[in-house]
């Protein structure tokens, strides 16, 4: 169970990519979530939204195509795909808040057993701002958290109650980590899938609330 950072990330984003469906409008957060774009199944039209005002985000541009007027929400230069469109930030967040985004993927510092999320205020640092995260969790139809299961020093990030400043209250639907896939339900966190190289005890040891198990137990997470 000594995965590199890169292997953990790849496992997480590959699993989330399996939730994509043809015709989905998807907003990917900065960091691990952005990598989901690399695993969209071939032949499937998934339209990526960037909250600074674009639908139909393409890959990074070739050096010769770099355009300062064309960036994503992480301020990175990007490219267009045919059929893309541009709009204002107010229109962008009308889409987000109005429930038109099928799925969003965000990183997290903490998630609690009710799906309350903390992902914008890093302890001991100046508050830099929440950007669009609070609107995304309030408005998107499906909210996925993509994160490493525990902190660097092995402390749980999935808690009974978040202690950091909140992004949204009871907003997360699914958590995907390198150890498994969890669904937030009214009863608590259900471990739907578990990675092939860990035991239930190992996952529980890194998770503060008691994980609930589905009928027949969690299935092995495809990787």
């Amino acid at each position: 169970m000594t995965l590199t950072e890169e292997q953990k990330r790849e496992r997480i984003v590959r699993r989330i990519a399996r939730e994509l469906r043809d015709g989905f409008y998807v907003n990917l957060g900065i960091g691990i979530p952005t990598l989901v774009a690399n695993y969209v199944p071939k032949g499937m039209d998934v339209i990526l939204q960037s909250e600074n005002g674009m639908l139909g985000v393409g890959p990074y541009p070739l050096e010769s195509e770099v355009d300062p007027d064309l960036i994503n929400a992480g301020k990175e230069t990007i490219s267009e795909i045919p059929g893309c469109c541009y709009f204002s930030s107010a229109d962008s967040f009308a889409m987000i808040r109005g429930g038109h985004i099928d799925l969003t993927v965000l990183g997290a510092l903490q998630v609690d057993e009710k799906g309350t999320l903390a992902n914008w205020a890093v302890p001991g640092k100046m508050l830099k701002g929440m950007g669009g995260a609070m609107d995304l969790v309030a408005g998107a139809k499906r909210v996925f958290v993509a994160m490493e299961h525990a902190t660097k020093d092995g402390k749980p990030k999935i808690l009974k109650k978040c202690t950091l400043p909140l992004t949204g209250v009871e907003v997360v639907d699914y958590i995907v980590t390198e150890l498994g896939m969890m669904e937030i339900t009214a009863e608590g966190i259900v471990l739907r899938e578990i990675a092939a190289d860990v035991s239930l005890e190992q996952v529980q040891a890194l998770t503060e609330p008691k994980l609930l198990l589905p009928q027949g137990g969690p299935v092995r997470m495809a990787s």
Binding site: S89, F93, L127, A133, D135
Partner: peptide
């Protein structure tokens, strides 16, 4: 510094 959620800021 006053921080706003981006959608709230736009609206």
């Amino acid at each position: 510094l006053e921080l706003n959620p981006q959608g709230t800021f736009a609206e």
